[in-house]
Design a binder for these strands. Structure first.
Lengths: 340, 340
DNA sequence: GCTGGCACTCGGTCCACGCGAGTGCCAGGC
DNA sequence: GCCTGGCACTCGCGTGGACCGAGTGCCAGC
């Protein structure tokens, strides 16, 4: 019906106005700023309905209305058009990310870029090891009983571990071992590595067997360690901006949760590539995030995301813009990692 | 003289009281809480002198006194005894840092530990490449004209760069090259590497020469890049605590400066090992840090620091405790890196 | 040279008040 | 039947004045 339609336009206008002004928005201001074609009184009636349905609320009796989490949710799902990035923004992305020298650099630039584009806190996850493939496995003797294992993935991640080997080992043996392991693992997805280990140990020459077993064990350990997933965070200064307004009393916990990484990583675990996920306010289980929204998406060229990236900010954020920015940066990062 | 002596005790008491309460401290409170053996009136006289000399100041006419930067400086240089860490703290350090699995892990744990011990923002610098020695140099062929160079240092840092090689290169040649470069560089300090490059190119077989030159050039580039120095930051949530009080209006710039890293790295560049450097408030050149103090020290076993670590907080901080914590953590990190 | 007393200053808090934005409701008009 | 203008009401916020108390500087006396 026409009425419903107008009511939604009112809701959209409220969200947009509140996001840009941070002031509870009244019927009069709404009528003045948005060409809704009706008088404030009519808008008031619509607002009363919207409030009853839980999309907006009044902070005080005599104040304007503010969107609720439910209101933002509806806005994101139904009302916000995808906002294409400006040419300048596209150019900025390219400029910013080109010339990155290694993975760390790519992710560092991405997080700064994303923070700058959205004016929110940006988070970028390192490519998950399990979904990366082995590019090279290097062994450096530290002593006769200790090897340094260096794993290099196709996404450019480098992990190193010290392996205590059960028997004294000479340089030639290490070289043999290196050749053997690289032949077995190079090009293989790390998630599949565990399947190969058993056969590999059995098939290898007796004098190498304990070594293969030790190194393989260490390799598999890297996949389950908590450090497996790493996070780069940037733009926390953006949070400080209106922290007192947007996060009354929850600013510190929020910063702590971000530093903790675990919370964000859990949220990130669910993201798929190319589908932007938005979780709003109370939808977030972690208490410190109940006043925040999280916009995230996976990056990576395949059908399975290599990792995730996103932004965290107050529920009062520019969802359309942030979704566009997050998606665009993810696409570029995916390309960069695919070609390196 | 006896008077001077008492006056300094008054200054010390003012600093200690202000640091712990965050309230301007008056003569009466001082007499009550610190056993100075004289009446408030006498203390008032001393305070008047201290104020005239610039060590303390009054925020308002009818308020207590607050130490100035000069007052803190004097306190740090002359009045604060070194505060030994408690047994529990020592144990916590050991527990926290043991079990670190690689360099990234060591530094990550250090920064969290330091933030926790001091309740300030902690910063830890990666070991400078120039002062590290080569443990291993690995070359992985990406295509016939591109090599991935992986540099592993004795401190556990790993750097990777893609090298575009001028001529098509086969696996055997890469192996030769790898052997040659490792023979030349392994064990050498990277700062000295630039000296070796010329001779190495001249001495190598003609077919390897362009390759040696290309890889060496990339190697030297890593030493001058801005990414050469990296920083881990933790505990920013601690800053948020009383940000409005301690950093009125400068909170956001401060966070920005920390994220920028450059500012901190510059401060860190001057630190020596085992000598803790403290720079207080206005002593810091960067504007965002003029309300903050920075306590830092180098870590590393030799006479030259491998890198620096420290804490940033309000000038109103527990200098004695923070100096002790920073020093202790630096010592542990130095040990850990030496033995790995 | 230290001490107790005293007058003075002045920032912070509390409270009363008025303003204005915003609302809900109602009667009238298209 | 829905929209509109009018109107009475609510209530948060900012303002201004009074009060309180912590703290000071100075001075006379021990």
């Amino acid at each position: 019906m026409a009425h419903d339609d107008r009511r939604l336009r009112v809701l959209r206008a409220i969200v947009q106005d509140y996001v840009s002004t941070n002031d509870p928005v009244g019927s009069k201001a709404l009528a003045a700023r948005y060409d809704l074609g009706v008088s404030p009184a009519t808008i008031r009636n619509d607002m009363a309905v919207l409030e009853e349905e839980g999309y907006i609320t009044q902070p005080h009796t005599s104040a304007g209305r503010v969107p609720t989490d439910k209101g933002y949710r509806f806005f994101v799902d139904r009302l916000s058009a995808i906002k294409p990035l400006s040419a300048a923004e596209r150019k900025a992305i390219e400029k910013f990310l080109d010339g990155a020298v290694d993975l760390h650099d790519v992710l560092g630039r991405s997080v700064r870029l994303l923070a700058q584009l959205t004016r929110q806190v940006a988070v970028v996850q390192y490519p998950t090891l399990a979904r990366s493939a082995v590019r090279h496995l290097e062994l450096v003797p530290l002593s006769t009983s200790r090897l340094l294992m260096v794993l290099i993935t196709d996404t450019g991640r480098v992990e190193q571990r010290v392996v205590e080997v059960p028997v004294d080992t000479e340089a030639d043996t290490v070289a043999e071992l290196r050749t053997l392991l690289n032949a077995a693992f190079t090009g293989a997805k790390l998630a599949e590595a565990s399947d190969k280990v058993g056969d590999l140990v059995d098939a290898s020459a007796p004098h190498l067997r304990p070594l293969v077993a030790a190194v393989s064990a260490t390799l598999l350990e890297t996949l389950v360690e908590p450090s497996e997933d790493r996070l780069v965070i940037g733009g926390t200064a953006n949070l400080a901006q209106g922290s007192a307004l947007d996060f009354p009393g929850t600013f510190r916990p929020l910063l702590e949760a971000l530093e903790e990484q675990v919370v964000v990583l859990r949220l990130m675990a669910e993201v798929g590539p190319s589908t932007v996920t938005v979780s709003i306010g109370e939808e977030n289980e972690h208490e410190a995030l109940t006043a925040a929204s999280f916009v995230s998406v996976g990056y990576g060229s395949g059908d399975q995301a290599l990792g995730g990236l996103g932004v965290v900010g107050p529920t009062r954020m520019d969802y359309a813009g942030n979704i566009a920015a997050v998606r665009a940066v993810a696409r570029y990062v995916g390309h960069l990692l695919a070609e390196s």
